[in-house]
Computed example of a mutant assay.
Amino acid sequence: MNQFWNTVQADWPKIVQKTGEHIELSLISVIIACLIAIPFGIYLTAHKRLANGVITVVSVIQTIPSLALFGFMIPLVGIGTKPAIIALTLYALLPILQNTYVGVSSVTPSLIEAGTGMGMTRWQILWMVQLPIARSFIMAGVRLVAVQTISLATIATYIAAGGLGDIITRGIAMINTNTILEGAIPVSLLVIIVNLSLLGLNRLLTPKGLRHQTKI
């Protein structure tokens, strides 16, 4: 244990740098995925004939081994952070898209009819009725994606994108458990912190009257 802490102290600047790179890769990828998948999921609720086909096509991405997908990016866009963000974003699309579609579609039709009867427009119904009810479904997808992306971002080291994967792979090459832990522990801590933060944000944003109905 003392040897581990001595190693951490010696490598602390590198750990901080790589953690920052890891957060940047993960955050940008999740944000882009949300900006694509949430509006598209909402769009599919109004075009349900397309929904199954689109979700099936997007789900095919999940069947591609992660390392292979990162490799496919190299001849297309080279190496570095750009291909890593593209690959991580592609992996992040399905859970957010599917949860958005299911969440908005599951809103009770009587609530929509009530809103229409009150003279609300389609966009008002979406913004004031459907999205508040579907928020927990959407946030559950975002939480899943955030955890998945932080974990997958370690593979970005193989295309020179940086992140904590650099430390982990260095430890593997050296057959050094302490160095591997230097990279693995921050990844685990990031997953826990982000998951709990998003869970708390969801509870904060969900109206009290809906919390018992939308616990996810």
Rank of each mutant, 00 (worst) to 15 (best):
S151H: 08
L131D: 09
A10E: 13
I150W: 00
S106T: 09
I175Q: 15
P39K: 10
S59M: 11
V191T: 10
I175L: 13
F4G: 05
A46N: 11
S105E: 12
S105D: 11
A10H: 14
V142D: 04
V194G: 06
A51L: 12
C34N: 06
W127H: 11
T100V: 02
Q213W: 14
L190D: 02
S151Y: 07
T177I: 14
I167H: 00
N195A: 15
I38F: 02
V8Y: 11
S188C: 14
M120Q: 08
T154K: 04
S105P: 02
G20I: 07
L204M: 15
L204R: 15
I172E: 11
S66R: 05
S188K: 10
V57K: 11
A92V: 02
P83W: 05
T45A: 07
I155K: 05
I32G: 10
A140M: 07
E113W: 03
I159G: 00
G117D: 01
L111H: 10
G80P: 02
W12N: 08
F137N: 10
T157I: 14
L69A: 07
T214L: 14
T7M: 12
P65C: 11
L50S: 11
V30F: 07
P207A: 15
V187H: 06
G200R: 13
G20Q: 06
G80Y: 02
I85H: 01
V104G: 01
G20P: 04
F40M: 10
V54A: 12
L199H: 15
G41V: 03
K208P: 08
M120P: 04
L97H: 04
P109E: 05
L67T: 14
M1A: 09
G78K: 08
T81N: 13
L196S: 14
E24Y: 13
A161M: 07
S106N: 14
S151P: 03
G78Q: 09
I167M: 04
I125D: 03
Q3Y: 13
K208M: 15
I31F: 12
H47Y: 11
I168H: 00
Q9I: 13
P75D: 08
G162C: 04
V8C: 10
T45L: 12
P207F: 14
D11M: 12
L205S: 15
G80D: 05
L190N: 00
A33I: 03
I32C: 06
P13R: 02
L198H: 10
A37G: 08
V58Q: 08
T7F: 11
I185W: 07
V191M: 12
I168D: 00
L204A: 15
V16G: 00
G117L: 05
V58R: 03
S29L: 05
T100C: 07
T121K: 10
